[in-house]
Nucleic acid binder design. Structure first.
Lengths: 109, 109
DNA sequence: CCGGGCTGTGAAAATCCTGTGAACGCAGGG
DNA sequence: CCCTGCGTTCACAGGATTTTCACAGCCCGG
């Protein structure tokens, strides 16, 4: 019964902790209220810190399959995710945009 | 995380106290009149503060076994429980909904 | 028997989530 | 400058999920 603190949890630069197995993302121990898609996106980004992930990769991981060429879902959800992260962690820049390529997650802003 | 350990009472952020062994839940020392199912559900939720518990987990703990895929018992009892908690502790948001996943108990609203 | 509380289920009502189109801002090139 | 391409955000409709209500069956004490 592996139900305690999951060993696959990611402890990030202090305050943000992501626990995919418990469907939770915590800031200072308090859970963010993220929707399924927002959480999946955050998990995917956080699984590859400092690596630039293309929209295709992100879409495949979160939605599955390939996105239409003009699909803006990833952008919209990055925006929604940034909004919620911004509430809990002001002054933190966790998700960076890389023009023409995709996004990059950086644990320490 | 063993759960049979004999902690006889849970003192929660101020006013709500849960005593599984006495089959009682108190608010400001006054007992709530909860039915068996409501109490079991509250106890189960309160045993894992701040943790999102899936419907499956809650059903298994309170009813035993696995619920039918379209069973709404957990939801209905959460609703009944919230109603009674709300009478005794207005303005308190103890049980949070996590869409598509389950519920989370938060001692301090 | 009767009455009252407890339970589970179905279904309506309320709420939330999702994807999409469009407006807006911003930067670079012509 | 103006145009264009790209990312960000807003608004909204449709769908999915949750909340609440009503009701019928049970159980048990009176």
């Amino acid at each position: 019964m592996a139900m305690g603190t999951g060993h696959s949890s990611q402890q990030l630069a202090g305050r943000l902790e992501i626990r995919p197995e418990e469907h939770a993302a915590l800031v200072d121990g308090r859970p963010l209220s993220l929707t399924m898609r927002e959480l999946q996106l955050l998990v995917t980004l956080a699984e590859h810190p400092q690596r630039i992930m293309t929209r295709e990769e992100l879409f495949a991981a979160v939605w599955g399959g390939a996105a239409r060429r003009d699909d803006r879902s990833v952008d919209v959800y990055v925006s929604r995710l940034r909004a919620k992260l911004g509430e809990a962690l002001p002054e933190a820049q966790l998700i960076h945009t890389h023009n023409g390529i995709g996004y990059r997650f950086s644990p320490d802003g």
